[in-house]
Design a binder for these strands. Structure first.
Lengths: 151, 151
DNA sequence: TATTGTTATACTCTATAACTATA
DNA sequence: TATAGTTATAGAGTATAACAATA
């Protein structure tokens, strides 16, 4: 198919718009149903990443802001805002990396791990709402196609 | 599949995250490559909607903010910001509807129609970048699955 | 020179709540 | 009562640019 042929003739043909509207719908639904959680999806993503980071062994370096920025495809400054908001809430703590003094390692606090359990439940509920309209294979296809965009 | 079974075990299993990252990637690419256009994707969507509105016949009412809010799934206040920004740029004009004095009909100006041509070219380029990773049928599937989320 | 974190700043998007005018 | 537009306000999210400390 040539580029000409796929030039959108109507607004509804624009794939980017479908992604944007879907994103908005998901955001809205999460905001409306996650009242008790008190964390945004983005904050939860960060907390989740920090908690899942494999470097719990002393030899491995803790996760740092750069790693989060890369994983979630954000600017360093944007990442800082998120990380500091979680620190302010007492959900993660920061300490200088042993190996590289520029890096500041991040670890979830006990409160952070507890909050993550609640938060993941809210994410799971949101996912269930989302998946309700798809078969398992459709959901897998959707995730794979979307990953091609952001990978 | 039960809800239990689809509870995400890792952050990468979260479908909502894939939508969010894909949305971000598209936004970023458009922002980086659309320099000359001077309009955001959202502004272009509004201008496009106004220009495509069928009510050019005197009998039909012009499109109003409420219609845009519904089509793009935005709050009325959010819609206002967008519409006013386009009016300030001289790309569309507003005038009271003949039938219903509460509605303010929107029409593209000549400058608006000219800007839309350039803007649609930028959208087409962004779409081409997006579609480059999909076959035609994959793109159709993706659009359809996303529509199920926001429809 | 490059990387990490930081600060300051700004813009877009989004929404809520309260208001006016009209239906 | 309900709808359309408005205003004021606020909070996310995002990014850029310039800076200090470290590699």
């Amino acid at each position: 198919m040539t580029d000409e042929a796929r030039t959108p003739g109507a607004l509804g043909d624009v794939l980017g718009l479908h992604v944007r509207l879907a994103h908005g719908a998901i955001q809205r639904h999460f905001a409306e149903t996650s009242g008790e959680v008190g964390l945004t999806q983005k904050q939860i993503s960060v907390l989740w990443l920090v908690a899942d980071w494999p470097g719990t062994e002393p030899s491995q370096p803790d996760i740092a802001q750069t790693d989060i920025a890369q994983a979630l495809q954000m600017d360093r400054a944007t990442t800082m805002t998120l990380v500091h908001s979680l620190e302010k809430l007492g959900l993660l703590e920061r300490r200088k990396s042993a190996g590289d003094a520029r890096r500041i390692g991040l670890r979830p606090t006990d409160a952070g791990l507890a909050a993550l359990i609640t938060a993941r439940r809210a994410i799971a509920a949101n996912e269930a709402w989302l998946h309700a309209r798809f078969s398992t294979s459709e959901a897998n296809v959707l995730a794979e196609l979307l990953a091609r965009i952001h990978r």
